[in-house]
Structure formats: structure tokens, C-alpha cells
């Protein structure tokens, strides 16, 4: 594939599909012909209904699973297994319960830099424990922490190995709304500061609008595809407390909601008609216009810009 831009994307998903064949049952293709590019420093959210293979796709990006066809290219080389360059924040935090918070982080840091002294490992880990505001909880076991604190440790562990790409699988879905909100605030601060390339799966539209530069919308599975890519039209310094006042907030939100509620199924017909180019799904920029409730400044360009 010829890259037309000067900057090569950090992640390039090239025509991947995943088929599950169990026993004598008819094999099921959860998603098919997925093309997606994530540039360095970009925060991309993936929204889609359950069963369109979001977690499978994230596992493929992480190298925990392999696609049935197609390939994933990260920094110019194909993903064939897991890598310390791609950190994962798991939905269920996945902390090791027999280790303390400090040891959980140190375990990751030691994996990344095996030759570091204990002192170096501890200082480096402490930086990330402080970052997620868990100072003073280093010696606690995960079972002594609340759900939100556990997920913070999961986030600190992922950041502590300073990965090229951060992969997050609905990291806040198991948390209550208040905790989720404060963690989103923290994540937005950290990601913007670190210019972290991030790919995140979510169900939450507001979460996607707050965090993402680009929002990838998938049709319902099986045979899910990338239906369109929505560019976030809100200012880059948006915060959870003020973003809903921006004039573009409502068009953004309505577009995403409309897609999830009404179009994720019907859009499959569009794909069946052959009018949809899987390689270059339409890039949508929902913006507000005078006198109109919502207006879609739809550009029929590709997402390669």
C-alpha cells in the first residue's frame, strides 16, 4: 500500500477480518474488511454495538489475538504478537491480586527495563502512582481498593511502560458515573500532556466526545464494518464541565446517537449496495450552522489526511 502522507501512521489496520468457527456450527465472521489508520498522538475511540467484535479488534491490535485475514501494521512492521510498545488497559483492570499496588506497577516497569536497579524501578513507578493520584496507597492490595482506584492502577501500569500506543477496552464501563467522570478528566489531562497515541473502545457517547479526536463508528455485527469516521469538531481544550456549552456539542452528540440508535443496522444495506468503500469510509464533521439544528459538513474525502 502506498502511503501518500508525509507522516506514516502509527497504526494501520489493513483489511482485517475475524471468523470464529466453533464445532459444527456455521462459522461466524464478526467483522470484515476493516481499514483504519491512527496517527501518532491521536486519540481514537471506537463505538459500536455489542457483538461487532470491538474487544476482538483490540486484542488483535494488542497482539493477543490474530486476524483471520488482513494485517495490522504498527510503526512499519506487522503485528505478530504482543509488544511492550502497546500497553493495554483491560476492562476488568486485571491487576495481580497477590501483589500490592506498588509491586503491580514495578512488575510492569521491570518487564520494560529488566536491567534497572530496584531504586530506579521504584522511582519510575512512583511517578505514575502519583500521576493517577494514588500516593499513599502503594502498599495496599487490589482487594483493598475501590473499583475506581483499581482501574487507576491499571491505567498507571499501562502508562508506566511508556508505550507507543495505549489500547483501552471500555476501561470505565464497570464504574459508577461519578467515578467514571473524574477518571475521564484525569485521563484527558494525562493523554493530552503526554501526546499519547490511544485507541479506546467505549459505549459512552459523551466519553468519546470528551476524549477522542476521531470516533470510529461500526455497523452491527456479524460482518461488521467501519461505517464512518467522525471527526471531533469541539475545541481541543474541551473539558467535561464545559464542552456541552459549545455549539458543536449538540450536532456531535446527535450524530453519534442517531447512528447508534437508528443507523448501525440500516447502514449494512448501504454496504450491501456496494456504495461503501471499506478502505475509505466517509469522514464526517458534524458542525452547527445558523438556523439549522444540525448540519453535516460531510466530506467525501478519505480518512488518510
Amino acid at each position: 500500500m502506498i502511503t501518500t502522507t508525509q507522516e506514516r501512521p502509527t497504526i494501520s489496520i489493513e483489511g482485517i477480518s475475524k471468523t470464529f468457527a466453533e464445532g459444527n456450527a456455521e462459522p461466524v465472521t464478526v467483522f470484515d474488511d476493516i481499514w483504519l489508520r491512527i496517527n501518532k498522538g491521536e486519540f481514537v475511540c471506537l463505538i459500536g454495538h455489542s457483538g461487532c467484535g470491538k474487544t476482538t479488534m483490540l486484542n488483535i491490535l494488542a497482539g493477543l489475538d490474530l486476524p483471520s485475514s488482513g494485517s495490522v501494521i504498527v510503526d512499519g512492521s506487522e503485528v505478530t504478537g504482543t509488544s511492550l510498545d502497546r500497553a493495554v488497559v483491560f476492562q476488568s483492570h486485571a491487576l495481580l491480586p497477590w501483589m500490592t499496588v506498588g509491586t503491580n506497577i514495578a512488575f510492569a516497569v521491570e518487564s520494560r527495563w529488566p536491567h534497572w536497579s530496584q531504586q530506579q524501578v521504584r522511582e519510575h513507578g512512583q511517578k505514575y502512582i502519583d500521576m493517577v493520584q494514588l500516593k499513599g496507597h502503594e502498599n495496599k492490595r487490589p482487594s483493598e481498593l475501590s473499583g475506581g482506584m483499581k482501574q487507576r492502577v491499571g491505567i498507571a501500569r499501562a502508562f508506566s511502560i511508556e508505550p507507543e500506543v495505549l489500547l483501552m477496552d471500555e476501561p470505565f464501563s464497570a464504574l459508577d458515573a461519578l467515578t467514571r467522570g473524574s477518571l475521564q478528566d484525569e485521563l484527558v489531562t494525562i493523554c493530552r500532556k503526554q501526546q499519547q497515541t490511544t485507541f479506546m473502545i467505549t459505549h459512552d457517547i459523551d466519553e468519546a466526545i470528551l476524549l477522542a479526536d476521531k470516533i470510529v463508528l461500526m455497523t452491527a455485527g456479524p460482518n461488521a464494518r467501519v461505517c464512518e469516521i467522525v471527526e471531533n469538531t469541539l475545541p481541543a481544550d474541551r473539558t467535561r464541565s464545559d464542552m456541552h456549552r459549545h455549539k458543536n456539542y449538540s450536532p456531535m452528540r446527535n450524530h453519534l446517537l442517531e447512528f447508534l440508535v437508528n443507523r448501525s443496522d440500516s447502514s449494512k444495506e448501504l454496504i450491501a449496495d456496494g456504495k461503501h468503500d471499506s478502505r475509505h469510509p466517509p469522514l464526517i464533521r458534524p458542525v452547527w450552522a445558523e438556523g439549522q439544528k444540525t448540519i453535516y459538513d460531510q466530506q467525501e474525502t478519505d480518512n488518510e489526511k
Binding site: 493477543l64 504478537g81 509488544s83 511502560i161
Partner: peptide, 21 residues
Amino acid sequence: REWMNVARTLEVKPLRLAFRV
């Protein structure tokens, strides 16, 4: 499986995987 997945994403070597995880 999630603990094994954590170890895999951290590229933990076999001996360390056996004794630490």
C-alpha cells in the same frame, strides 16, 4: 486468562511468568 494476557502484553519471560504469575 486476564492475568496471562497482562503477562503477555508485558512480554514476561517464561521463567519469570512461572514464578511471578
